[in-house]
Computed example of a mutant assay.
Amino acid sequence: MRHNLQTAQGIISVLAIVCLAIGWFNIFSPEVNNILSRRVFYIIVGVSFILQAPLLVNKKLVYPMYAAAGLCIIGAFLPYESKIAGIKTLGLLAGVILSLSNRSNFRQ
């Protein structure tokens, strides 16, 4: 099961990068680029964090990882102009930090 989750997470991570790249390089119309890079990207990252949470070595980080995923996903559905739309970036940052701290713990 662990291998399946890691494989799914890898595929999802590649999809997230593709969404972000599409937005950066303006491949489609501005509306589609915004949806892919400002919404779909964060939803995919949130799903990736959800899949990663049970794999964390430090079990104290599991619920914070779920919280980071929630911030990404909820923030993706907020209007772009919303004052709290930045929670998706906060969730992304928190998830990356949790993921990196898990890697350093794993090596010990």
Rank of each mutant, 00 (worst) to 15 (best):
M1L: 11
M1C: 09
M1Y: 09
R2T: 12
R2V: 13
H3E: 11
H3N: 11
N4K: 10
L5T: 05
Q6D: 06
Q6W: 10
T7Q: 06
A8V: 03
Q9Y: 07
I11R: 08
I11A: 15
I12N: 09
S13K: 03
S13I: 10
L15Y: 05
L15A: 13
A16S: 15
A16P: 00
A16H: 02
I17N: 06
I17Y: 06
I17T: 14
V18H: 02
A21Y: 09
I22D: 00
I22L: 10
I22H: 02
G23M: 00
G23L: 02
G23P: 01
G23S: 12
F25M: 08
N26P: 02
I27E: 01
F28M: 08
P30T: 04
E31R: 11
V32G: 02
V32I: 14
N34A: 15
L36V: 06
S37G: 07
R39G: 04
R39L: 12
R39C: 11
F41D: 00
Y42R: 00
Y42W: 12
Y42P: 00
Y42D: 00
I44C: 06
V45S: 10
V45G: 02
G46I: 02
G46D: 06
G46L: 07
V47I: 15
S48N: 11
I50W: 01
Q52A: 12
A53E: 01
A53I: 04
P54F: 14
L55T: 04
L55I: 09
L55F: 12
L56G: 00
K60L: 06
L61G: 10
L61Q: 13
L61A: 14
L61T: 09
V62S: 10
Y63R: 13
M65H: 08
Y66R: 04
A67L: 15
A68R: 01
A68I: 08
A68M: 04
A69E: 01
G70Q: 08
L71K: 02
L71N: 01
C72M: 05
C72D: 11
I73G: 00
I74N: 06
G75V: 05
G75M: 05
G75Q: 04
F77K: 06
L78P: 02
L78M: 14
L78N: 10
P79Y: 10
P79E: 07
P79I: 10
Y80V: 13
Y80N: 08
E81Y: 12
K83P: 02
K83Y: 11
I84D: 04
I84T: 09
A85D: 12
G86N: 10
G86C: 05
T89M: 12
L90T: 03
G91M: 00
G91W: 02
L92V: 09
A94R: 03
G95I: 03
L98F: 12
L98W: 00
S99W: 14
S99D: 03
L100D: 03
S101D: 05
S101T: 12
N102C: 13
N102I: 02
R103T: 03
R103L: 15
S104F: 14
N105H: 13
N105Y: 11
F106N: 04
Q108W: 06
Q108T: 08
